[in-house]
Write a protein that binds this DNA or RNA. Structure first.
Length: 826
DNA sequence: GTTCTAATCCCTA
DNA sequence: TAGGGATTAGAAC
């Protein structure tokens, strides 16, 4: 059945309106039997009886439509009676007439002036009739003729201007305000009808999906391999199960949407998505894009339109490059899948952060928490599928107080560049690929980002971990937020293409942050990953497997240290113990310059892609375990232009990390390893503390000049230390440029190339004598030495073997000197 | 009890 | 001040 109106089942099959786009045309009069159906309750020989109201409605429906007659109406429907029959018709079926006195009715009738159809309340007769009983009746209906005219104009113009309304009111003997109200109500009615229509389409869609789901479930009971026709193996079933789970969530979301629309009609929002659902739907359901009118994918929650087109097929995971910009099914499908993954990950993160034993077990030595994998597998269903063969797991949890509030931390985490700035030694590079949901009501609650990151420990012996992941942010309570990351390589291709080899998967990881008094917050960090251990040098395997490399402790310790520094940077007084009077803005400029220096140092240690480093093969670089890379520096005011060479290596030293750190940062002992010191102790010109630990500071060192006619050289040095490791980064700087910075000038134009050291604990017994020495029962250090040197100021110049050899000699010489000074060169 | 409809109130641009 | 959303209340079903 095709029709222009809507059959409202709850109204007993009455035709209640007209769908937009179907013209109102024709009038069904009582002498037009072709337009009238005999209702089931009437017999064929009985003449059709048309009630005033049903006739009124029938006049605005398309010709040929079925008109459902109301069987309970008595015959007072003669058209000739309709004009003035509204009030005086005898009571039918116990309506209002029973409640009103005859007198009152008479008064009403008498008081009517001019038109029978004018509203009584607007009549002057009523206003001054104080002695009369108050008018109970303000209601009447316009005559069919009037409505016909009104509808005709509405069809032409749903929004008539005052002139048109005035003209119509004169013609129909109605007040202009009555005409105005009529149009207003008609527009509202039209809107409601459209919304209802869309609602019913959604319901149908939902039912259809439910049916599909049921049949899929049925198919699941007897899985058959599509290739051979035999019983499906377990792996396939689990994949199907995964698809079904995803499909179910999609259905649930669909239902939520219908509920939300239904809630709109009920006058209150009905949501079952928890924090994800906005409190209210958009004002107009037209924005939902239902009914094949387009799916913009920009709404506050997933679109699920037009999915009937793939009925009967399993949801195929689309190889979408981006969730945005893909219209219709693919986009909404992918978004809902990503959302499901994010929600599951969030659930897992919160549980991992909250539950102690038996999920987490404390080790006897060091009190570190270790994930009980059996319990983990019992508690959670894997979000991202089974662990690839050859991968090992790494899980850690750490809680700490951090001087930052939850909102600021959430903002930092949800902004890729700020996130990278906060963890320069951990993040080589990161970017936001796609903002799937930006959050609700201007907050980050419900924000879902697709991100790419290269994570690093500062050593050429540990490859960067390239991960594509979802980052989902949720507010759990006032002042309590959680941000979860989860790899998505398992369910979609990486932006760089399907062939990218994944060497690391992040299982639900992230942090739960809770505001505490005095600007602090309690941060519980969980890091859970699976990685290919074979790519990691043996020297670093204990460190990585004990979660000291990429683990929660490192994230929390770095966060604490960085936030301390930020707190000092933001405070009005930057403590310094220097011999020169540097202004406040000068200190801030210096800290900013040091921050850039350290960040550049970090990006030069590992072969991350942030700079286009060319890694030299062993034929050029040699096989002494030194990684040599080159790049061209052009048009960057922050560093000298030319060919930059980076050389880095890592060694094991039987010295505790703190001792190594104290030795390397001491300007008095610098001459023992630094050729720039010219064999003499250096002098600390300026010292800016970045936190309570003396090891966290920025200082300006001066080396003694080689000869009397040579000016002395300045070295900018930044040292950082926390529970997870330490850094000593330095760079020779131009004296006039530093003067500028110390006076608060812009540090962006100070050219520097950083060198330095990264120190981490060895993480336990280090296997076999590779590059470092005999294996020991832990307690030693892993030291990374890295130099970035300008080998030629002409970017077009070729790199010479001599340059490479010089740098390699410099590195091995430095390491030998350090070993000798610490008496561990045996 | 539900739906339709004319009218009213109140808010906003 | 016009227009629209929310609401009211009589009438119809």
């Amino acid at each position: 059945m095709s029709f222009g109106g809507f059959l409202d089942s709850s109204a007993g099959g009455r035709l209640v309106g007209n769908y937009i786009g179907f013209p109102y045309s024709g009038i069904i009069a009582k002498d037009d039997p072709s337009a009238i159906n005999i209702p089931s309750g009437a017999t064929a020989h009985q003449p059709p009886i048309v009630s005033p109201s049903s006739l009124t409605k029938s006049m605005f429906n398309s010709p040929g439509l079925s008109l459902a007659l109301q069987t309970g109406i008595e015959g007072h429907g003669d058209l000739t009676q309709l004009g003035d029959g509204n009030f005086d018709a005898p009571p039918t079926g116990g309506g209002m007439m029973n409640r009103r006195s005859r007198d009152a009715l008479d008064q009403e009738h008498d008081s009517r002036s001019g038109s029978d159809n004018l509203d009584g309340t607007a009549s002057g007769d009523d206003l001054d009739a104080a002695d009369k009983p108050p008018r109970k009746k303000r209601y009447h209906r316009h005559t069919p003729q009037q409505i016909q005219e009104l509808e005709a104009l509405f069809k032409e113009c749903p929004h008539p201007d005052e002139k048109q309304r005035l003209e119509l009111s004169k013609r129909l003997c109605l007040e202009t305000r009555q005409v105005k109200f009529w149009f207003q109500n008609r527009r509202t009615q039209m809107k409601t009808q459209i919304e209802r229509h869309e609602n019913s389409i959604l319901r149908q869609e939902n039912d259809k999906l439910r049916g599909e789901n049921m049949s899929l479930r049925e198919a699941m009971r007897n899985p058959i391999c599509t290739n051979c026709g035999g019983p499906a193996i377990i792996g396939e079933i689990s994949l199907e199960e995964q698809h079904l789970r995803i499909e179910n969530v999609r259905l649930k979301d669909e239902l939520d949407r219908v509920c939300a629309i239904a809630g709109k009609f009920l006058g209150r929002p009905i949501t079952s998505m928890g924090g994800l659902m906005p409190p209210q739907l958009p004002n107009s359901s037209l924005e939902l894009g239902v009914g094949g009118n387009g799916f913009d994918g920009l709404g506050p929650f997933p679109d699920f339109g037009a999915i009937g087109g793939v009925a009967g097929s399993l949801p195929v995971i689309p190889p979408a490059r981006s969730a945005a910009g893909i219209p219709g099914f693919d986009c909404s499908m992918e978004k809902s899948m990503l959302l499901e993954l994010a929600l599951a990950a969030m659930d897992e993160l919160v549980k991992l952060a909250q539950i102690d034993e038996p999920l987490w077990v404390r080790t006897l030595e060091g009190g570190r928490e270790v994930l009980n994998h059996e319990e983990y597998l019992r508690t959670f269903t894997s979000c991202i599928g089974v662990k690839p063969s050859g991968f090992v797991s790494e899980a850690s949890r750490e809680t700490g107080m951090v001087i930052i509030n939850s909102l600021a931390l959430v903002e930092t985490l949800m902004d890729a560049s700020r996130w990278a700035e906060m963890f320069p030694c951990l993040i080589a590079r990161t970017s936001t690929i796609d903002v799937i949901y930006s959050g609700m009501g201007g907050t980050r609650n419900g924000a879902l980002h697709l991100m790419h990151a290269e994570l690093q420990v500062l050593s050429p012996l540990v490859p960067v971990r390239e991960v594509n992941f979802l980052r989902f942010c949720k507010q759990h309570a006032e002042g309590v937020w959680a941000v979860v990351d989860v790899s998505i390589d398992a369910i979609r291709e990486t932006p760089s293409g399907p062939t990218t080899f994944v060497s690391c998967r992040r299982l639900p990881s992230g942090c739960v942050v809770q505001d505490m008094p005095s600007g602090y917050s309690k941060v519980t960090w969980v890091e859970h990953a699976e990685y290919d251990e074979s790519q990691i040098h043996q020297l670093y395997r204990p460190l990585i497997s004990s979660s000291l490399g990429f683990g929660a402790r490192r994230w929390v310790a770095t966060l604490q240290r960085q936030c301390q520094c930020l707190a000092i940077l933001m405070s009005s007084s930057v403590p310094s113990h220097d011999q020169t009077a540097i202004t406040l803005s000068g200190r801030r400029s210096m800290l900013k310059l040091a921050q850039r220096m350290t960040a550049n140092f970090c990006t030069g240690v590992c072969a991350s892609t942030v700079h286009k480093w060319n890694k030299l093969g062993p034929d050029v670089a040699g096989d002494e375990g030194v990684q040599v890379m080159t790049r061209k520096s052009l048009d960057d005011p922050g560093e000298p232009s030319g060919i930059v060479l980076s050389a880095a290596t890592s060694v094991w030293l039987p010295v505790p990390p703190h001792r190594l750190f104290d030795f390397l940062r001491d300007e008095q002992l610098r001459s023992e390893w630094d050729i720039l010191s010219n064999g003499s102790p250096m002098q600390e010109m300026s010292h800016i503390a970045k936190g309570p630990d003396h090891g966290n500071c920025v200082s300006l060192l001066r080396a003694r000049a080689m000869s009397s006619n040579q000016s002395s050289m300045l070295i900018l040095q930044e040292t950082s230390t926390d529970a997870s490791g330490s850094l000593v980064v330095y760079a020779p700087v131009d004296i006039p440029a530093m003067h500028l910075v110390m006076n608060g000038g812009d540090s962006a134009y100070v050219a520097l190339l950083p060198s330095g050291f990264a120190i981490v604990p060895d993480g336990g017994p280090v296997p076999g004598a590779v590059n470092g020495g005999p294996s020991q029962r832990g307690g030693g250090s892993l030291l990374t030495v890295a130099f970035q040197i300008l080998v030629n100021s002409l970017p077009t110049a070729k790199l010479t073997v001599e340059s490479v050899d010089t740098v390699k000699n410099l590195i091995s010489c430095t390491i030998q000197k350090i070993k000798a000074a610490l008496q561990c060169d045996s």
